[in-house]
Design a protein around this nucleic acid. Structure first.
Lengths: 133, 133
DNA sequence: ATATTTTTGCATCATTGTTGCATATGAAAC
DNA sequence: GTTTCATATGCAACAATGATGCAAAAATAT
């Protein structure tokens, strides 16, 4: 998948920072935090720039936030070109990795009288295959 | 329910800070953050003291953390005297309130090969009855 | 190549949450 | 009631995440 194509498709300017963020994220099976991405790019960009890029990419749903406990927010790839179904996330409490469970869809839950639904987050915690070896 | 009893039951010292935190929490139907509790107590205690008290109360499961997005962590009452079942939480995106959905238990989800399960967090977002009026 | 819009970098700031250490306090022993 | 001892608290300091304003730089369209 061409990164330039993704940005064009969503009518975003092809800036090197956005391209490199997506490159790093596509190379990773796990969701990554700002500092993890910054490390992988050898601090080539300013922290502020990352945060703003995340916001832009998130607004287009190219990436989505995953928040586990009060750890730094991580980002995972979403609708790069095609839409991706809403799904649960797995958190490995041993290696702190986060990944999308694309096959675990979100069921609907009953709510009390008068409440309206908009969204659900499901975080499943445990140990990943690597850590269980 | 006597607050002193709760602390005694869990073999915790009855300090005024712990008692007042529990008082505020029992008077609230919603989960509260450190700053919300501090405000309700007119800043009577140091921020650090609150954080340490939360940790202590959480270790005994008298309260439990609820983390929504990257908002400040909120705390809800848990096993004050009797154990409370693991449950989902509701987040009102209009008034930012968080409450326990005690009747929404946590189902089990299938995990990939080699993964082991330990815990699940379910956050249901929407608008509460008050905000829907 | 130029103009225009958008991004970026830098400085600065706010907030949350933590830690070390001296002092104060609670509970138990006398 | 006083003393003792463990534990909680307050204070100072710190680290990290995340946001904002503004000038400089870069991307696209002309």
């Amino acid at each position: 998948m061409e990164i330039a194509e993704i940005l064009n498709f969503h009518k975003l300017k092809r800036t090197s920072c956005r391209e490199e963020i997506l490159e790093v994220m596509m190379a990773s099976k796990q969701a990554l935090s700002e500092s993890e991405i910054r490390d992988r790019l050898n601090g080539h960009y300013d922290r502020t720039t990352f945060y703003r890029s995340f916001k832009t990419l998130e607004a287009k749903r190219i990436i989505h936030k995953v928040v586990i406990d009060n750890l730094p927010v991580k980002y995972a790839l979403g609708n790069t070109l095609k839409p991706k179904k809403k799904h649960a996330h797995f958190f490995c409490k041993d290696c702190n990795s986060v990944e999308c469970l694309n096959d675990t869809p979100i069921p609907t839950y009953p709510l009390p009288q008068g409440y309206t639904y908009s969204d659900t987050e499901i975080i499943i915690k445990g140990s990943c295959a690597k850590c269980n070896q």
